[in-house]
Amino acid sequence: MRKPAPTKYRSFSPGGIVGYPSDLFYEEVAFIAFHFHWSLEDILNLTHSDRRRWVEEISKLIA
Rank of each mutant, 00 (worst) to 15 (best):
P4K: 03
P14K: 09
T7F: 02
F34V: 09
R52M: 02
F34C: 09
S22K: 15
H35P: 04
R10G: 13
S59G: 04
A63S: 14
L61C: 04
P6M: 06
S11R: 02
G16A: 14
E57N: 00
D50Q: 15
E56L: 10
P21R: 02
R51F: 03
L24H: 02
A33L: 13
K60E: 11
P21S: 08
G16N: 14
I62T: 06
L44N: 12
D42L: 02
H37V: 11
A33P: 12
D42Q: 06
R10H: 10
Y9P: 01
T47W: 01
G16C: 14
K3L: 14
P4V: 04
V18P: 08
K3R: 13
Y26C: 07
S22I: 15
K3D: 11
L44G: 07
S59E: 07
G16D: 13
S59T: 00
T47R: 02
D23A: 12
L24C: 03
W38C: 01
G19K: 15
Y26L: 01
H37F: 13
K3H: 12
L24R: 07
I32L: 13
L46Q: 08
M1Y: 02
Y9S: 09
L61D: 03
V55T: 07
P4R: 00
R53M: 08
D50G: 11
V18Y: 09
D50T: 10
L44Q: 12
N45Y: 08
M1W: 07
P6H: 05
S49C: 09
F31V: 06
R10V: 04
L40D: 05
F25Y: 10
K8I: 13
E27V: 07
W54I: 10
E57I: 06
Y26W: 05
K8W: 11
L40E: 08
N45V: 00
D50C: 08
L40M: 08
P21K: 06
S11M: 04
I58F: 06
S22D: 14
G15N: 07
I17N: 15
I32A: 08
V18K: 13
P6E: 06
